[in-house]
Amino acid sequence: MRATLLAFSAVAISATNLFVSDYSGYINTFSLTASNGSYNLENTFSNTECAPNPSWLTLDSNRGLLFCLNEGLETVNGSLSSFTVNRNGSLTHIKNETSIIGPVNGVIYGEPAGQRGIVLAHYTGSAVTSWLLDGGGHFELNQNLPYTLSAPGPNAARQDAPHEHETILDPTGQYILVPDLGADLVRIYSWDVVTLKLKELSPLKAKAGSGPRHAAFWSPYAVASENSTTFLYLVAELASSVTGYAVSYLPNGGGLTFSEIYVSSTYGMLNLPEGNAPAEIAVSPDNRFLLISNRNNTSFSLPQTNGSAIKSDSFSTFQFNEDGTLIFHQLWPSGGSYPRQFSVDKTGSLVAVGHQYDQNIVILERDVATGLVGEVVARMPTPGNTTCIQWNE
């Protein structure tokens, strides 16, 4: 399938592939090209080896590998799959292994030139798992860490159990952070350099009932060091908030401490729509802005060429102050319903958005100088509810 897209810039780019997963079982490769200032998006390859419910894609671009998490919405277990990324953008399946149900996010950790692993957050399975990577896309289970709650959280419907939602590395690469929506925690782990076994450290306790979902680190000097000024920004899905913390490193690998310095709704000072549920958060490539996707708000109505209109959820952009506080910068339509996840290209000029309920991907222009997100320049349907989109650059 092919779509003709609107022109927004005379800047030319070479062909770029994007990998997109959806709940119907597919990983699709989309090729984005530019010609005479107009963008063209084409679905070039499809793969179903991560079925039935791909939820997340972790790209290891330096080694030409892609790891896919199957959430297992239709089965009693989830799974982890690996693929070789071929030069034409197609994927060659390497391995699939059954896991605890509900993996929704994964990150690679370990020594870059030594033993490495991948750690997964299991939302439905209330667990964290780690897997040893054995080169060439092969892997084996290393550790299962299940969790329970002694009592439901303040939001009993969503906090009936621990719900691990994301895995991220701190800037130095020595700690793994896992926001837990059900337990109102950000779990923190160090890891053994030989076995890569995770060791749980003192967590960050979020506001009761807030439901931590995703987080991002930022340094005003873009330096990764224990002695550098470092901040963490935590998006809470249930409270529709973004909270900033000043981060300090304890000596001898003892963990992290956090001091709250900023809190706001993800709409800044604007009226927050009832039911709003923020999802993804990311720092712009130029290190100047923080982007957050908002679901279930339909804050915008976008006119279509046939005279009809579509309801759109939103993007929030904040600008960083040097002291770690934020300035609300922009609220803008995401281009569809339920922007579950998004990725910014390495130039910062394009934002690829996966709309879960609209079952599509949208490419938005972005002004690098001002940090303002702009118009939709590409739109393409996906076979099912879109879950993850990653640039292969």
Score class of each variant (00 low, 15 high):
G324P: 06
L238D: 14
S299A: 14
S259Q: 15
I281Y: 12
P251F: 14
L234C: 09
A224K: 02
H214G: 05
L272P: 06
N294V: 00
P220M: 03
T317V: 15
S308W: 11
H214W: 11
Q319F: 11
A215V: 01
L234A: 08
P203E: 10
P220G: 03
Q330D: 12
N294C: 02
P278M: 03
P220N: 06
T317W: 14
F289D: 08
I327Q: 12
V283R: 00
W218F: 09
N276Q: 11
G275A: 04
P203W: 11
S202T: 11
V283H: 06
R288I: 00
L256P: 03
G254M: 03
A246P: 05
Y221W: 06
F318G: 07
Q330A: 04
L238M: 09
S241Q: 12
S334L: 04
V235M: 02
S284Q: 07
G335D: 07
L326A: 04
P333W: 10
S293T: 11
A215R: 04
G336L: 01
N294L: 01
E274N: 09
Q330N: 07
S334I: 03
L238S: 08
S241P: 09
F300H: 05
F258T: 08
P303A: 00
E200P: 01
Y245W: 05
S219D: 08
Y245H: 04
E237Y: 08
G336Y: 12
E260W: 13
L232E: 10
P273Q: 05
K207E: 14
F328G: 03
Q319E: 15
S202V: 11
F217D: 06
V263I: 15
D313F: 10
Y245R: 00
T266Y: 14
L204E: 15
F318T: 12
P285G: 10
Y267H: 12
G244R: 02
G254T: 08
S314K: 03
R288N: 11
P339I: 02
F328R: 03
L204I: 12
W332S: 06
R288V: 02
F315K: 05
Q330Y: 15
P333C: 03
S264L: 02
F318Q: 08
G244E: 07
V223Q: 10
Y338G: 02
E322G: 10
E260K: 14
L201F: 13
L201E: 15
S265D: 15
F328P: 12
L302R: 06
A215Y: 10
A309F: 08
L270Q: 14
K197A: 14
P333I: 00
L238Y: 15
P339G: 00
P285K: 02
R288E: 14
F231V: 01
A224Q: 09
S241C: 03
P251G: 04
Q319Y: 09
Q341I: 13
A239T: 09
V263S: 14
N294P: 02
N297Y: 07
V263F: 15
G244I: 06
G244S: 04
Y249V: 00
G255R: 01
P303T: 05
Q341V: 06
H329I: 01
A236G: 08
Y221K: 11
E237M: 03
K311M: 13
E280Y: 11
G335V: 08
K311H: 10
F342W: 10
S241E: 15
L201C: 04
G307Q: 09
D313C: 02
A215C: 08
W332P: 01
Y338H: 11
R213I: 01
S284D: 10
F258S: 01
N271I: 13
G268A: 00
S225W: 05
K205C: 05
V247D: 10
